[in-house]
Amino acid sequence: RRRVRAILPYTKVPDTDEISFLKGDMFIVHNELEDGWMWVTNLRTDEQGLIVEDLVEEVG
């Protein structure tokens, strides 16, 4: 499975499927959606939700 790491922190918009995260958080990518969004699991918090790919980098 594809893994990505947050390069910046992010605070979710209330009442959306987004998740908040810290710089350095690792995610497993489940689905890549339109307009650069990804459905992921945050490995630190075990939370699932949407993040935008501009805020993460690939992990080898």
Rank of each mutant, 00 (worst) to 15 (best):
E18F: 06
L50C: 11
D15F: 13
T11F: 08
P14W: 07
V40R: 00
F21W: 03
I28Q: 07
Y10F: 05
V29Y: 02
V40Q: 00
W37G: 06
D25V: 02
L33I: 09
E53F: 14
R1A: 12
I7D: 02
E47M: 08
D35K: 14
R2D: 04
L43K: 05
G49S: 00
T11G: 05
I19D: 00
V59E: 08
R5E: 04
T45M: 03
S20D: 08
L55I: 06
I19V: 08
I19T: 02
V59A: 12
Q48E: 10
K12G: 10
L55T: 05
D46V: 10
P9H: 11
V56E: 00
T41R: 09
V4P: 02
K23D: 06
E34V: 13
V52Q: 15
G36C: 06
I28W: 10
H30I: 13
Q48C: 13
T11N: 11
E57N: 06
Y10H: 09
Q48A: 10
L33Q: 10
W37I: 06
F21E: 00
I19H: 01
R44A: 06
T16K: 04
E34H: 15
E58R: 09
F27Y: 00
D54E: 12
L50W: 12
G24L: 04
V59Q: 07
D17H: 13
L50A: 10
W39P: 00
R3I: 14
D46L: 15
L22A: 10
T11L: 10
V4T: 04
F27L: 05
E18A: 05
E58F: 08
L43Q: 09
I19M: 06
W37D: 03
A6D: 00
D35G: 15
M26R: 06
E47L: 07
T45W: 02
L8C: 13
I19P: 00
V4N: 01
F27R: 00
E32P: 07
G60F: 14
L33H: 10
G49F: 02
E32I: 11
D35L: 11
R5D: 01
W37L: 09
L55Q: 10
V59S: 07
R3D: 04
F27C: 02
V52H: 14
V4M: 09
T41W: 08
V29P: 01
D15C: 13
K12C: 10
W39C: 08
R2T: 07
F27T: 00
D54T: 15
E47F: 04
V29T: 03
K12E: 04
E58A: 10
E57A: 07
V13K: 14
E34Q: 14
P9C: 13
G49I: 01
I19L: 13
L33C: 12
D46F: 15
L55M: 14
P9K: 08
P14L: 08
V52G: 12
T16P: 01
E58K: 08
V13T: 15
N42W: 02
Y10I: 02
W37Q: 08
F21I: 04
F27G: 00
R3F: 14
M38T: 03
F21P: 00
E18P: 02
T45Y: 01
R1I: 15
W37P: 02
M26K: 06
T16S: 12
F21M: 05
L50T: 10
L50Y: 09
A6G: 04
L50M: 13
V40P: 00
T41Q: 09
D54L: 11
V52C: 14
L50V: 09
T16G: 05
L33K: 09
M26G: 04
N42T: 02
D17T: 10
R2E: 05
M26Q: 09
E34M: 13
R2G: 06
D17F: 13
M26P: 04
R5Q: 09
Q48F: 11
I7E: 03
D17I: 08
E53P: 10
S20I: 01
K23Q: 11
Y10L: 03
I28T: 09
N42I: 03
L8W: 12
V13W: 09
E47Y: 04
T11P: 03
E53C: 12
Q48T: 12
W37V: 07
H30C: 12
V59I: 12
F21Y: 08
A6L: 01
A6S: 07
V40D: 00
V4F: 09
E57F: 06
F27K: 00
D15V: 05
V59G: 06
G36K: 08
I19Y: 01
E34F: 12
W37Y: 12
T41S: 07
V40K: 00
N42G: 02
I7F: 07
G24I: 04
D46A: 15
K23A: 14
P9F: 07
T11C: 10
F27Q: 00
D46M: 15
V4Q: 03
N31P: 01
D25G: 00
L55S: 08
T41Y: 11
G49V: 01
L43A: 06
P9M: 08
I28D: 13
N42K: 07
M26T: 10
M38F: 09
V52E: 12
R44L: 04
L22R: 10
N31M: 14
L55N: 10
Y10S: 04
D35V: 07
I51T: 03
V40F: 00
Y10N: 04
